[in-house]
Design a protein around this nucleic acid. Sequence first.
DNA 1: ATGAAAGCGCTAACAC
DNA 2: GTGTTAGCGCTTTCAT
Lengths: 350, 350
Amino acid sequence: MTEQKRPPTLLDVARDAGVSSNTASVVLNGSRSNTRVSEATRQRVLSAAANLSYVPNAMARGLAQKRTQAIGVLFGVAAGSTDYVTNPYMAGILQGVLEAAGDAGHSVTIYTQRWVNAKVSAPLFRDGRTDGVLVIAPPATADILAGLATVGIPLAAVACEAAELEIPSADVDNKAGVEAVVTHLAALGHTRIAIITGETDMSSTALRTLAFQTTLTAAGIEFDADLVTSCTYSGAGAESAFLGLWNRQQRPTAIFACNDAIAAGVARAARSLGVGIPEELSLVGFDDVPTAAMVTPPLTTVRQPLQMIGSAATKMLLGRIAGDFYPATAQLLAPELIVRESTCRVGSDR
Amino acid sequence: MTEQKRPPTLLDVARDAGVSSNTASVVLNGSRSNTRVSEATRQRVLSAAANLSYVPNAMARGLAQKRTQAIGVLFGVAAGSTDYVTNPYMAGILQGVLEAAGDAGHSVTIYTQRWVNAKVSAPLFRDGRTDGVLVIAPPATADILAGLATVGIPLAAVACEAAELEIPSADVDNKAGVEAVVTHLAALGHTRIAIITGETDMSSTALRTLAFQTTLTAAGIEFDADLVTSCTYSGAGAESAFLGLWNRQQRPTAIFACNDAIAAGVARAARSLGVGIPEELSLVGFDDVPTAAMVTPPLTTVRQPLQMIGSAATKMLLGRIAGDFYPATAQLLAPELIVRESTCRVGSDR
DNA sequence: ATGAAAGCGCTAACAC
DNA sequence: GTGTTAGCGCTTTCAT
């Protein structure tokens, strides 16, 4: 087994350079510009450090300056699930987080412990492991954000309401996305438009449902509560949600599925019933995951700039960490309607 | 802004319990079974800690016992790329890593710094931030594994040859996967089978190419070097790779694409040329990513147990961390051939 | 311009 | 059984 040789310490560098550990420290991290070091000794320290391939110990440094140069990520996972990154949404967000954090010289620690409740779980984040925590899409019913806020560590969030907690956040502009969908469908002549949402305790569900209703009435289309149903973002239950809608006295001519997994489920169910998409039923998704372009027919959907959202939230968190004055804005990133082949003029042959 | 109140320290707990910090420490982490603590004081310490919601400082603990309860993950990304987790392969592996690490009470730190070379980059991993590093699918040409090995920190790897470096690793059984593909195709009567690999500097490419050739000859099919070509695992270049093969004097009747992204590219290119899949050309992928089932036609492919691979490698790393005696085995996990509709008997109408 | 010394919060020898 | 005393490796006043 390769020997675990003790890494060189600052003292080793100092000794080799013939200076005190303090001087070595000052040289090595450029701080304390007031107390300057002579060019000669500076060079001696630098070369000693280079010779030893000296790397400062993150733990010691963290202890001393209460800064770890790491941010924590907490994924909002459904209760009982341990699914962190297998869905493209989370993966895309994480990618953006990694990029922004990397650019800022921070590493990213993913918290794997399950969230229980604020009382139990929140204090765990005072362990000093990270300089702040980024919370990704927590269920709206969980007390994660509020709990973390009481702990007093720098926070930022993705895809959840956080303004009243004074927490900065980033998300896709759900309202704009839904508006684009409804406008597109209305322009195609659809007036009986159904919506299938994800979990009802997700903040995106509330936002999208509300925007759906608002835009509909703004477009002069009557809102029919009978055409609102839900399943889960995983796509489980999409079939029965579709069947429920399809068995209504007055069937919808278009369905807005709140993500692509749900839309894919609907497409599958429709096909097995011989319902033609888009001739008999227009279908729109949300997210524009890679599969959206691959399914039959290719899905009209709303693209979320996932990586940008992740990066934006990360930058906000880093801002909070850098200085307490960082504002608690909610940054909404523009979605893009991608029109493919799952939507067409109502009643058209195609 | 929420105040950053100073978290309670072990001393606070000790004071509240009326004991020394040492006693508090012993109680709180059950260690030092030789020096036992009276039940009375134990309870006093415990309740004091609970009252304060005491959480040990990870940095201080790490410094003192040189253990961080965190493992590091280093993604092998192509030079110049910053794509960590946007592809389903990496996401699946990471998911497995998170689960296994979480079960063991370790958090996962993703290293975002770019790998330069062993001399420059390897020492950075001596920063004491993690107890060990898991290297995921590094390019075979990079000196990552060898470099890290010289640093003397616990290591494990995914999807790369690591045995001669005495590093434990996990991967799909590439040979078995390729054998399943070739056997399937041969059983369908194919004798002109082409292969399109990913990047030539990936260890999987070498393994799959070799297994391809071996199995072919074992099946009594002549190996034709003209039917071997490559592009990138991202799928970029798949079209021209396909065109190259399709312009050969003797066209292949089947193509084995070394991952699903490549296969999807081939399918697209074939369709735009009016080449029918599977009637005119059988197509097999690798990985079984979610899109594989969605493309037209649904793809016959080899499923990799990504999460299991990630978990297995993580457990090995944890084994290394726990005790130096952990063996450097290469664990190969069984793939599964998923037969869908992109393959059929050669020359058949379907 | 440089060094001495204290301390970050915790664990681990070693007394008593 | 419990307290005392050193560190872990680094940063940071404060002297000099």
